[in-house]
């Protein structure tokens, strides 16, 4: 663990910031920090600029809530995409995984989380209302619920299905084959494209 001092020096501060990142333990945080200390000033400045720049330029798409530089995002503004289909995912990273397969040509909707009452997250904390608005106003005929294949993801999909099915829209789930408990973002491309292509009515 990193001890917190009253007055944190610049090195300790940098180590602490790295340690907050996912997958970075205390040792790795230290190694990265000393790497940066040895960097030429210009390289360090360009790294800092890249971090600030990404926060300045990245917004959430006002239609699908995907992470994007332009609003609406590339997918939403691409007229060759099939606007009759919406694939619902938990996180923006899942869009990246699905896009990599090339097996899906419809639109997306990013929930930004999953129903997880045990950790204090209910449906009201997710982008569900805007999904329903999109379905009600648009030309949508199919909604694919591609939440993670774990208890929270399944519960979220069951909840959405209850809301969407009465609207007379086809609700589908990716085919079985995605390993239970694993995150969508870690599924390999072949498995993922098979799951999307072989999707079944919920």
């Amino acid at each position: 663990m990193i001890r917190r001092h009253q007055d944190v020096g610049p090195v300790a501060k940098l180590v602490e910031e790295f340690h907050k990142l996912p997958g970075i333990g205390p040792k790795m945080a230290q190694r990265l920090s000393y790497h940066i200390i040895r960097m030429p000033n210009s390289e360090a400045a360009s790294l800092a600029e890249a971090i600030v720049g990404v926060k300045d330029r990245i917004v959430l798409c006002s239609v699908c809530h995907n992470i994007t530089e332009s609003d609406p995002c590339n997918v939403c503004s691409d007229s060759t995409r099939d606007s009759a289909r919406i694939c619902v995912v938990e996180e923006a990273l899942d869009v990246v995984s699905l896009e990599r397969t090339g097996a899906y040509r419809g639109l997306y909707h990013v929930l930004h989380g999953v129903i997880d009452p045990m950790n204090g997250i209910g449906p009201e904390n997710l982008k569900i209302k805007s999904l329903l608005d999109r379905i009600k106003n648009g030309t949508v005929t199919e909604v694919i619920l591609a939440t993670n294949p774990n208890l929270e993801g399944e519960a979220t999909s069951m909840y959405l299905q209850r809301l969407i099915s009465p609207l007379g829209i086809l609700v589908t789930r990716p085919a079985r084959g995605l390993p239970v408990g694993g995150d969508l973002e870690y599924a390999d491309e072949v498995t993922l494209s098979r799951a999307i292509e072989g999707r079944q009515e919920f």
Partner: peptide, 16 residues
């Protein structure tokens, strides 16, 4: 590593 698909343990540690 349980959130990786290849983990032997994924799926065994679900709530309930």
């Amino acid at each position: 590593g349980v959130r990786r698909s290849r983990s032997r343990m994924s799926g065994y540690l679900e709530p309930l």
